[in-house]
Amino acid sequence: MDDLIVKVISKIIIPFMQVFGIFVIMHGHLSPGGGFAGGSILGASLILLTLAFGLKEAKRKMPHTISKIVETGAILLIVSLGLFGILSGYNFLTNGEAGFHLGRTGEIISAGFIPIATLAIGLKVGSTLITLFHTIIEED
C-alpha cells in the first residue's frame, strides 16, 4: 500500500470529488441527486483517501471524534427542524406553513427546510460510510 502513482493521483482527484459531492448536496432540491447521492460521493472520497494513504493517515485527517459529532449532530438537526414546527403551532416536521422561507422556485435558498435537511442527510451518510469503513478494516 505504498504506491507513488496512486498517492499522487488521489491527491489530485480527492478535492474535486469533495467539491462535486457538496455540489450535489446543495443542489438536491433543484437537480438530480440529493442527500444520499452526495453523501455517498463524500464518503467515497474519504474511502479513497484511506485506501491510498493507509488507515493511520486517514484517521489523522478524519478522526472518529469529528465523525461522531457529525453523525449525532445531523440527527439532532433534523429533530430540531421538526420541533420548530411544533413550536410554531403546527405538526411535527411542517415545512412551509410553519414559517420556513419558501423563496422563489429555482434558487439555492428556497423550498423551506429542504436544503438544510438534505445537507444534514448528506453529512450523516458520508460520515456513516467512513466510520463503517474505518471500523471494519481496523486490524485486530
Partner: peptide, 13 residues
C-alpha cells in the same frame, strides 16, 4: 414546497 425536484420534495417534506 417550491422545489422542482419531486423526489426531494417527497423525501424531505
Amino acid at each position: 414546497t417550491n422545489a422542482p425536484n419531486m423526489i426531494s420534495a417527497i423525501m424531505t417534506d
